[in-house]
Design a protein around this nucleic acid. Structure first.
Lengths: 330, 330
DNA sequence: TTGAAAGCGCTAACAT
DNA sequence: ATGTTAGCGCTTTCAA
């Protein structure tokens, strides 16, 4: 009812002890105190509904229990489910997420990171291909706060890391295409290449070293733009390095009155939710995106708990999900 | 380079003035000071690269420049673009977003809101159908922090509000269907009905009072589940109260080997990005989702600037986007 | 076993 | 025009 904030002082007064005692007892050091005192303090706290003020606490150097998250584009299904995974795992441990959207824009990302740092986040989870190492280092150095780099880019040797098995993903896609009897294949390569995407490509090229490589933007419209060339070159099957790209190809094909998979087989990457709903349903390499987020959060929580343990790298498995966008030619 | 935090004291020393002077000058009260002093202080700040500590500032009762955002499901395209709009507008004014995902779960939402409150957010932007009024009020009362309720639910008369013209949206959909010659129509109604969705329905029913109403969950799988009944009842055209629902219907239809729009016309709501990429491209009522987010953020910023101005309600226009999922029968 | 007191970095009222 | 000082709510030595 009454909106007054109850402070530690009131609890102390009510319990008839000093504020120091209250602080101690309420912070896990109860064992050093007379059980009776403990009792009184806890009772007082409960009666008054006392909750320690987060901000005051941070000021004295405690954790903020807040993690900064930076993604390039929350609107992208991949990142939104990633964020969901992170956010849920974090909240479970009492951490909260501060989200920033970098928009693939270096300057904005830097600003966002700085703002996050100002608010005293305990750590950063960063998934952004365009963030530069220098910015990262700069932000990092302001205070010794842990960073977890996700998927998009390797960050030297100074952080934990979670990735998926990109190389294998590429391989899986290629093998499937080969098995289905395709030989004249292409792969769409983003102009803004990141480490993990390159691994996918490498995996793919193991089976199809001669594959036609077409560069474009890693987005729906990027995919759409590439259809003309695909058709000109008489490509049978194309490996899109992301589902987004594949969806763009779908649209491009429809606009040219061509059909998938008759006129062109396409295989995507990510296994975003919409893959099932698109026509024909998109065959794709599934990354455990939600799990990726959870793992990242988990790593962060562990790191915060023991800041000096050696850096960890986790790699999550991928798998092929066969649906209807690849023609069976044999 | 050096990770030490530079405090106001060092700036003061360097400039040869007191910390109070520094604080004043750096907080817009420079006009009361000797230009020379101002000069010195600013120089000192720049040389040292001083940035006021956010937390210390908050402690003395300043704003945190942080807004708490609660959405039910960030994974949903509608909410992710909403969040993007909010986040971008906020960041532009130096505010940062703390995002929580409610997951349509009252308890989790409450927890999230409480965590946000603990971190001293200046205000809340809440878009969640399942949040109860009591929880909202409770959180609100802890401190007098403004709330903006978005879309999903009206929150008594104690907050600003942004919505879109839902009634008109429903009307638009109905009129189009009628104009295209459809008479045997259905509308999918979510079992968890929110105010704005009800308006859509009402608008639709103006033109089709006798429309078949089918209840289901407001999600892709909800849409999928409803296809059987649609077919049984020989419905010609269906109004899905959200694009998600429509996508579900697409899948359901494909599974039954039926085609859209030949066997069933469908019209969606929201105009999520995927509408263009789905086959056939989905005709839908477009809400300016991104704009909705921006407006909400804008409202919040204004409210924070003048806490006592009268509450505002903005309603944004919607429009019909005609694509290929409705059959032209005339 | 408990309490007094010194900050954390900043702002704002009050002196000078 | 500028400096002094008292907090904000909490944690943490250090003494008692």
């Amino acid at each position: 009812m009454c909106a007054k904030k109850v402070t530690i002082r009131e609890v102390a007064k009510r319990a008839g002890v000093s504020i120091a005692t209250v602080s101690q007892i309420l912070n896990g050091k109860a064992m050093n105190f007379n059980p009776l005192t403990v009792q009184k303090v806890q009772a007082a706290r409960d009666e008054l509904g006392y909750k320690a003020d987060h901000l005051a606490r941070q000021m004295v150097g405690k954790q903020s229990k807040t993690i900064g998250i930076l993604v390039p584009e929350i609107t992208n299904s991949f990142f939104s489910t990633l964020v969901k995974g992170i956010e849920e795992e974090l909240l479970r441990s009492g951490y909260i997420s501060m989200l920033c959207n970098g928009g693939f824009n270096g300057a904005k990302e830097e600003k966002a990171l700085l703002e996050l740092a100002k608010r005293g986040v305990d750590g950063f989870i960063i998934a952004s291909p365009s963030i530069s190492d220098e910015v990262l280092k700069e932000v990092l150095q302001i205070k010794k706060r842990p960073v977890i780099v996700l998927d998009q880019k390797t960050f030297s040797e100074r952080s934990d890391e979670v990735t998926t098995d990109d190389f294998n993903g590429g391989l899986l896609a290629a093998r499937y295409l080969k098995k289905m009897g395709h030989t004249k294949v292409a792969v769409i390569v983003p102009d803004l290449a990141t480490v993990n995407i390159m691994y996918r490509l490498q995996g793919f090229l193991v089976e199809f070293p001669q594959a036609l490589q077409i560069k474009t933007e890693l987005s729906k419209s990027g995919g759409q733009a590439v259809v003309a060339e695909l058709l000109e070159q008489n490509i049978e099957a194309v490996f899109a390095l992301s589902d987004e790209l594949a969806f763009g190809i779908y649209l491009g094909m429809r606009q040219k009155n061509k059909s998938i998979p008759n006129d062109l087989s396409v295989i995507g990457y990510d296994d975003v939710e919409m893959c099932r709903y698109v026509t024909p349903a998109l065959t794709t390499v599934a990354q455990p995106i939600y799990e990726l987020g959870k793992q990242a959060a988990d790593l962060m929580i562990k790191r915060l708990a023991s800041p000096n343990s050696p850096y960890v790298k986790r790699v999550l498995p991928v798998k092929l999900v066969i649906r209807s966008s690849v023609e069976v030619k044999i």
